[in-house]
Design a protein around this nucleic acid. Structure first.
Length: 466
RNA sequence: GGGGAUGUAGCCAAGUGGUAAGGCCGGGGCCUGCAAAGCCUUCACCGAGGGUUCGAUUCCCUCCAUCCCCUCCA
């Protein structure tokens, strides 16, 4: 089964065929390191993690690049407000970014380049663009001339002649000295508000525009034509549109073959905004006692192209769902009975495995994939007394493979009880045999207070850390 | 003003031109010394109104609501 993705460029689901067979070169827009990651960021990064992991599951040699934007208006503004050198300021959030990804069990990208480490590459592209007549220099910067690039607007499906400058109300119309309002900055000449943030360039001291870093770094690490470029839907325009214009104008080649965009999330049915008090960073949620694992699960319950409604009830539901899976895996891990495998079980495992894989192949339909997993869980639970160790191992192996994509399953921990605790469990079993239920229940209570749940099963008494 | 999406049970969420997966919560039952886990069972007129069709939640139109973008917000 081929992997298929919805390509924002063509607005259709297409079979994925990379430039180089067996390899997937993907560029994923990373964070601007001026703050901690919020759950909206997480959704996009987790979508990209799923994309990465699924391609790997399907045997692709994945090469993912995720940039760190450590130079832009916001990083300059906030570092100056803190009275801190830019690099010192961004270092704090770079470090936090990697900590957050680790907490969420995000598979690392192969390369995490920083914008400030690639200024010469950016200058190189800008120079080419000027030479080819796609860019011009003014008193305050170098701009890309969108009227010179025919395909401008092809990704966002916008007509370049009807773009309304400042329609969003966020930018003053007269901010820059551009030929036309839609032209965007490739290089910004130094101004006092930049403080000591500046680099030398053929156009004087200054700093790169926002979009050019992605063109420079993606081409450096992945070549002039990449397979997949992804990011949040809000980056489609102008950011990705501008990247296409710069890159294709400079190289004359197609920049990216597939464009994947994730939808935003809302919180309790409302747009997430600091002013509404429903703005949460991962750190906020962890501080409230929610687990990164539950958050990961929750953010994976909705297809990436649909708006996700993040709710606190949802996190609780995620906890409960994960516990169900945990218990299932735990029970399977304790199966001891030997015997021939049930052919019907094996067939069902195959069916659900295929269903899971087909769902993910079809534009990463993880909700449907999880449905297959839960159907398998129920069916196995239903006939648990007939499950042999051999079959249990097979199912566990499948879940292990599935978790190489999901990243939120829990296969239990190694035996880490103290001798005393082991003794209490066996003492309880003896008490039960002697019908001394009061003593047995007392011991169970003591163990529970230590976070150890004791369960009596047909295969004997088992315990579980909770 | 222009462009793009979404609206399925208390909550989250798949999906299909032939009457709707899955998860969470709730009710009832079984199992268990008691639990835990599990199982069974129950819980939807698919935003509203038209249209096309033998038949629409699924296609078309209108409306309503929410979200995203229209130069630097994932």
């Amino acid at each position: 089964m081929p992997v298929r993705f919805y390509n924002s460029m063509t607005r259709t689901v297409e079979e994925f065929t990379p430039v180089q067979k067996g390899t997937a070169a993907m560029y994923t827009c990373g964070p601007t390191v001026y703050n901690f990651l919020h759950i909206g960021n997480l959704r996009t990064f987790l979508f990209e993690d799923l994309l990465h992991r699924w391609l790997r599951y399907r045997g692709y040699n994945v090469r993912q690049v995720m940039n760190l934007t450590d130079i832009d208006d916001k990083t300059i503004r906030d570092s100056r407000a803190q009275g801190m050198p830019l690099s010192e300021f961004t270092e704090i959030y770079k470090k936090a970014f990697f900590e957050d990804l680790k907490a969420l069990n995000v598979a690392p990208a192969e390369v995490y380049p920083s914008a400030t480490g690639h200024i010469p590459e950016m200058i190189g592209i800008i120079r080419t663009l000027i030479e080819k007549g796609y860019a011009y220099s003014t008193d305050d910067g170098v701009y890309f001339k969108i009227s010179a690039f025919d395909g401008y607007g092809k990704l966002a499906h916008l007509d370049k002649d009807s773009l309304r400058a400042g329609a969003s109300g966020r930018v003053a119309n007269d901010e820059y000295e551009k030929e036309t309002v839609s032209d965007f900055a490739l290089w910004k000449k130094w101004s006092p508000s930049d403080g000591d943030v500046k680099w030398q360039s053929p156009w004087g001291e200054g700093r790169p525009g926002w979009h050019i870093e992605c063109s420079a770094m993606s081409m450096k690490y992945l070549g002039e034509t990449l397979d997949i470029h992804s990011g949040g839907i809000d980056n489609m325009f102008p950011h990705h549109e501008n990247e296409i214009a710069q890159s294709e104008a400079a190289t004359g080649k197609q920049f990216a073959r597939y464009w994947l965009h994730s939808a935003h999330l809302i919180v309790e049915g409302e747009k997430m905004a600091k002013s509404k008090g429903n703005f949460f960073t991962l750190r906020d949620l962890l501080a409230k006692g929610y687990s990164a694992r539950s958050i990961r699960y929750l953010l994976y319950t909705t297809h990436y192209r649909k708006p996700l409604n993040f709710t606190f009830d949802g996190i609780k539901g995620a906890d409960a769902a994960l516990k169900r899976i945990d218990d299932f895996l735990f029970t399977l891990g304790n199966i001891k009975s030997e015997g021939a495998e049930d052919a019907e079980f094996v067939r069902m495992l195959t069916t659900q495995t295929e269903k899971f894989e087909a769902a993910l192949d079809e534009d990463l339909n993880i909700a449907e994939g999880m449905g297959a997993l839960f159907e398998l869980i129920r069916a196995v639970n239903e006939g648990m007394e007939r499950v042999t160790k051999g079959f249990a191992d097979r199912v566990l192996k499948f879940f292990g493979k599935a978790d190489s994509v999901l990243g939120f399953l829990n296969f239990g921990k190694a035996d880490d009880l103290t001798d005393e605790e082991h003794k209490m469990i066996s003492e309880r079993s003896d008490a039960k045999k002697g019908k001394d239920f009061a003593r047995a229940d007392e011991l169970r209570k003591v163990l529970l207070d230590r976070g150890i749940e004791v369960r009596d099963t047909p295969d004997g008494t088992v315990w579980k850390r909770i």
